[in-house]
Simulated assay, not measured.
Amino acid sequence: MSRDHDDWILSSLLDDLARLALARDKIRVADVIDTIGARGFGPLLVMLSAFMILPIGMVPGIPGVAAVLMILIGGRMMTGETRLWIPARLGRVEFTGHLLAVSVARAQPVALWLRPFLAPRLPLLIDSLVMSRVVALILMVTGAVIFLAGFIPGLPFVLSLHVLVLGMALSTRDGLAALVGYILLMPEILLIWHLFL
């Protein structure tokens, strides 16, 4: 899978993750963060939410790791930082290269299918200072809920949907996609209210 095949940010990220998966039997969270590099928080959020939808999300502990990373990303966004810092212990969490390869293979056709629907537009809905803080708050609250209640079957999957859409919106500066992500929050909030309140 050459980077020349498709230079779209999500496709190139998946290509790099596929190479990482083929190169190592065991992969650390820190390796994935390094692979994402300077692409920003958007692709990282896409990856985290996709992991909870794809087979890798069934590995015990992965939803919890993804939840902590969402909280950390939200915190960094809230302070205006553009690079993610993670604790060393979290960076050492491992999973198999095979599982990552399978997850990437399932995600690639979806990423290519989504590409025509995403474009820079309505940037005030996603990358203004106010909306950046709103997204940061959404991520921190979502991460906290997943971390505390992720043991409920299917809940991490449901709560990852708006994070996936917001990650794509951040990756492509697509305010319309961000609006869809905000709308997806409504039924998720009602679900949480029904389960816990």
Rank of each mutant, 00 (worst) to 15 (best):
M1W: 09
S2L: 14
D4H: 14
D7N: 15
S11T: 13
L14G: 00
D15G: 15
D16L: 04
L20H: 03
L20S: 07
L22F: 15
A23M: 12
D31C: 06
D34H: 14
A38I: 12
R39L: 07
A50V: 07
A50G: 11
I53N: 11
I53A: 13
M58P: 05
G64L: 10
G64M: 07
G64R: 05
A66F: 01
A67D: 00
V68D: 08
L69Q: 03
L69G: 01
I71Y: 04
L72H: 10
I73R: 03
M77S: 04
M78H: 09
E81I: 09
T82I: 13
R83Y: 12
G91K: 01
E94F: 03
E94V: 09
L99E: 07
L99Q: 10
V102M: 13
R106V: 11
A107Q: 04
P109A: 11
L112K: 15
P116Y: 06
L118A: 03
R121K: 12
R121W: 07
L122G: 05
L125I: 08
I126M: 02
S128W: 10
M131E: 10
M131P: 03
S132F: 09
R133N: 10
I138A: 09
I138Q: 12
T142D: 07
G143D: 01
F147P: 00
L148V: 15
L148M: 12
A149V: 14
A149K: 13
A149Y: 11
P153T: 10
P156C: 11
S160Q: 04
L161C: 08
V163A: 05
V163P: 00
L164G: 01
L166G: 00
D174W: 03
D174P: 04
G175F: 00
A178L: 01
L184E: 14
L185I: 12
M186V: 15
P187D: 10
I192N: 02
